[in-house]
Write a protein that binds this DNA or RNA. Structure first.
Length: 96
DNA sequence: TAGTTGACCGGAA
DNA sequence: ATTCCGGCCAACT
């Protein structure tokens, strides 16, 4: 076995996020095997973004968007609206 | 090895 | 409703 870093695990999980859906950092961390490591997830993202990892589909559990290494929250929101996750004027995630 | 940092989370004032 | 605080985890220096 090899000791994979969270970076590898998180990347695999985030890349598995279906289109039109978003996960929170806490959810990703939970699936990564470490519940509560939401900060660690963000830490890895900011230093390791990948074209195969739609990190723009990862948002804060509070409903906020969070930051983005590719154009700020504005670009991130814009992508989420393109996915249909956010409304045309919505800038926050809304769960049922 | 230990210390610091950070795209967070949740509760309290 | 907004703002402040502490806590959690992993990576970086």
């Amino acid at each position: 076995m090899k000791a994979e870093t969270f970076e590898q695990k998180v990347k695999a999980i985030v890349s598995k996020i279906p289109k039109g859906k978003v996960l929170t950092y806490g959810e990703v961390a939970l699936k990564a095997g470490s519940p509560g490591a939401a900060r660690a997830v963000g830490t890895l993202m900011k230093g390791n973004y990948d074209p195969t990892v739609p990190c723009h589909r990862v948002v804060l559990s509070s409903g906020a968007i969070g930051d983005y290494n590719r154009g700020g929250s504005d670009e991130k929101i814009r992508k989420l609206r393109s996915e249909g996750v956010l409304g045309k004027t919505d800038t926050r995630i809304t769960w049922a």
